[in-house]
Design a protein around this nucleic acid. Structure first.
Lengths: 228, 228
DNA sequence: CCTCGACTACTAAAATGCGCATGGGACACT
DNA sequence: AGTGTCCCATGCGCATTTTAGTAGTCGAGG
């Protein structure tokens, strides 16, 4: 899941980005409203975290411009404690939720997941593909009841594939959602990580879940006969 | 919504079928694995409810054979309470969910709706030409229920023809959409790929779907008028 | 009805480049 | 310093794509 963090405080932004990356999000940063809008239009984010206080265009303006442009990306606003009216105007501008600074990372993550879930119309935090279960809250993966330890990137990739389960997912889509704007399309990172996931997820199981569609992309699904 | 119930206990099956019909499902019954497989191939169900305990082929076998044949129909397994390992092996065989017998009809209905909802969320637009079906998300093609494996280019060509089904599609249009700007118009690539598609799609079927319009292009359609 | 030329079908071999595997290096955090 | 994750680079096998060549079909005009 790829997130855009818009925050004028450089350090604050970096700290937040790091925290999110540890929880398997791909994070881009923007430090002012115009940059934020530009990035939001160019890339496809799954969520945008928007500080109200920004140089130039403030958060509410960014938000309403996005909505005016027809974007339905979930937006989470950050507001300072003493600016209570900001909450109201933020929601008015089209934000989906707000969090008061200073915030606890755990709470922020909970709100993020709630927004993502709402968008996906998922009923719960568990993604399931055959006997593979992914708890998106705890970031825990099990297959046939056995826990599978994954690194942040491995998890991010698996979760994205699971979120689009059944569909053939192209490399461009994967890099868009699992990596950030610095992804180098000539690298073979995706293949490397798919291979790592296979070792951990598919090894020793009768049916494979991660399928290669040569020339098209990858697919996470239960039933795939590779020939016929 | 059409459901296949596979249950060897005649009374149990009838009771379940009645309960489902009261909730507006169309229900077919099968009492053993082979019949179930046959019905599943001939008809297209929206969901299959599969008892693990069956005479002859058991539920897991039916399940994995369906998956091996490329079917992606949602499968809900019924397992007895004391056969806990069945849950695992059921999911292993490619089932999407399981319910423990004896079950409450309300709970079963909830699971059914959850699976159907998931399918709706995940299933993309399906192109259909006579008995040829193209799932554009899974990139899977079936004719008369049988999966047809295609390479990336073959699929791209077929999807484009299907997208413009009925119309006569010229070579220029095909090369524009299926190949890139470097396409060499003196090559016979299109003819080669049309030929490959015919082998896979039309061979062994009474009606041809891929038609040549001499001097004009090609056409994907069920019944073509042979004059001009 | 036959012939001819243009268009299309089919086959097979050559070339391309995708995806897999693996190991080592950069970087950060302990 | 040590551990682990992420990223980069190389080489290879092989499915797919492409090229090329021959056989076959169609339809109009003689």
């Amino acid at each position: 899941m790829r997130i855009l963090v818009v925050e004028d405080d450089l350090d604050g932004g970096r700290v937040l980005a790091k925290g999110l990356r540890e929880h398997a999000f791909a994070v881009d940063l923007a430090h002012d409203g115009s940059t934020a809008l530009h990035k939001a239009f160019v890339n496809s984010y799954d969520l945008i975290i928007l500080d109200v206080m920004l140089p130039g265009k403030d958060g509410r303006e960014v938000c309403s411009e996005l909505r005016a442009a027809g974007s339905s990306v979930p937006i989470l606003m950050l507001t300072a404690r003493d600016q209570v009216p900001d909450r109201i105007s933020g929601l008015n501008a089209g934000a989906d939720d707000y969090v008061i600074k200073p915030f606890d990372l755990g709470e922020l993550l909970a709100r993020i997941h709630a927004l993502l879930r709402r968008r996906d119309r998922l009923n719960g935090p568990i993604l399931q593909v055959a006997d593979l279960q992914i708890d998106t809250h705890q970031r825990r993966v099990t297959r046939a009841g056995r826990p599978i330890p994954l690194t942040a990137k491995e998890y991010a990739l698996l979760e994205y594939l699971a979120w689009r389960q059944g569909a053939v997912v192209g490399r461009a889509e994967i890099s868009e959602h699992v990596w950030d704007e610095n992804y180098d399309p000539t690298s073979n990172l995706i293949e490397v990580y798919v291979q790592r996931l296979r070792r951990k997820v598919d090894y020793g199981h009768p049916i494979r879940l991660i399928h290669t569609r040569r020339g098209e992309g990858y697919q996470l699904a239960a039933g795939q006969s590779d020939e016929a």
